[in-house]
Design a protein around this nucleic acid. Structure first.
Lengths: 251, 251
DNA sequence: CAGTGGTCTAGACCACTCT
DNA sequence: GAGTGGTCTAGACCACTGT
């Protein structure tokens, strides 16, 4: 069996896109129907395929366009103030400064979601404090960041205020007797749920990374769980490693 | 305007899926047409939406099913043999051992792809050595791993052999005078291209992480660029951090 | 206003799976 | 053979964009 017509059209368009044609937009659906002698349904199936691959974006009443966005560097290790040892990973800070960063902050009490409760080691549905942020660069949302804390860790501190904390929330935690000494990072790759699509204004075919940080104190208590949602079309996650024993990597 | 019919149906199905209905499969398209009084096109548009969200998988001639796969832990830092300091991040090694790991290896000379050439610091299209691997667990492909080396770094060494190198390729490089002391990690989140879909047997709505490792020697030369492709439906990337100054995190 | 993409219908044929 | 999802057609109306 040869591939279906819509897949052949998708392959042809994919090739032309790679070659740099269509830099000013694709032909209209009607023109493609004519050029390839296919029904509108088949043409649209091919275009939808490319939309879902993240190669195209469409604008109602206007047309289809090749998608290309600049990626911002997201460097979890910069949280440690050690970016200087990894020059390649340092541009996020500079880029963010150039790109007019802003954030919306909202602090509230919520029932811990199951996965957060499990990581925090609290009962399912126990009330915890969440600090929700949407971070923008140049007015474009590029990260959701929800930080969960057990109540005793943050109540009565500046971390409860819906405003930026200049000295850092982790510093506030430390002042309150909950200094963290270790963190576990997990990165999940998936398609966004409808709420994330809405809050981040995501187009079709845009996957996200869910970066979950679990912060431990020296005696092993979890005092912080962060869930950051990073759209794949506008973020690249970077971190550096310096190791004298790198040559021992198993391969 | 109210949402279109297909979006309402998608929302209804999404909710039922979350509630655990449909654990044994969804109703057929014909049954959904009947239940919701919609045309087959509209029903299929809703189902296709959920397929592209990675919530469902379909089997021709059989039906639609809720998708759920176990995630394997991918821990770049284990490359350094330091996983022991991060107990939570150690299960990948154990899981891999339990899951009957295997890999196909192929070594060849190729013209460096543009992004690899840029990272290696060689001319565009210059001939380099690539070591391509597909790693399986229990027979399921869960990672593509292409390692690129300048010719002088690996020619005449065991790294050129299409077989596992027990002592590790990085050890081989070190023996050849190219010990690495530092690495830069980049993680890109995107939809897979058709070749990746084929080689990894990816279903629709399955995004991938592209993990690019750039390995430096002490004097700053790049001797290794690795591109690992990790399907999001079967991998979670983990790494741990231990820091006395964690409390200084800006927030 | 003409042209665009977004939604929706009814109907058809096919390859495939399961019994 | 009956039922399933996969492909494809022709046609319609809509909201939206540009001029």
């Amino acid at each position: 069996m040869s591939p279906p017509k819509y897949a052949q059209l998708a392959a042809t368009l994919r090739e032309r896109i790679t070659l740099g044609k269509y830099a000013d937009g694709l032909p209209s659906e009607a023109e493609l129907m004519k050029e390839f002698a296919m029904s509108r349904t088949t043409v649209r199936t091919a275009l939808t395929t490319l939309l879902n691959e993240g190669l195209l974006q469409s604008a109602s009443g206007v047309g289809y366009f090749v998608k290309s966005l600049e990626h911002f560097e997201y460097s979890p290790q910069e949280d440690f103030g050690r970016a200087a040892v990894i020059p390649e990973a340092d541009s996020f800070t500079r880029a963010a400064a150039r790109r007019n960063p802003s954030q919306d902050i909202e602090v509230s009490f919520v029932h811990a979601p199951p996965d957060v409760a499990r990581r925090l080691g609290v009962d399912d549905g126990e009330v915890v404090v969440v600090r929700r942020r949407i971070r923008h660069l140049d007015g474009v949302p590029f990260q959701l960041n929800d930080s969960y804390y057990p109540r005793d860790v943050v109540e009565g501190t500046d971390a409860m205020l819906p405003a930026s904390v200049d000295r850092g929330v982790n510093r506030v935690l430390a002042e309150n007797g909950f200094a963290q000494s270790r963190a576990l990072d997990e990165i999940w790759i998936r398609m966004p749920n409808p709420e994330e699509v809405r809050r981040l204004a995501l187009g079709p075919g845009t996957p996200v990374a869910e970066h979950v940080i679990t912060g431990f104190t020296a005696d092993g208590r979890v005092v912080r769980v962060v869930r950051a949602i990073l759209p794949g079309d506008r973020n690249v996650i970077t971190f550096g490693r310096t190791h004298p024993d790198l040559e021992q990597v198993p391969s």
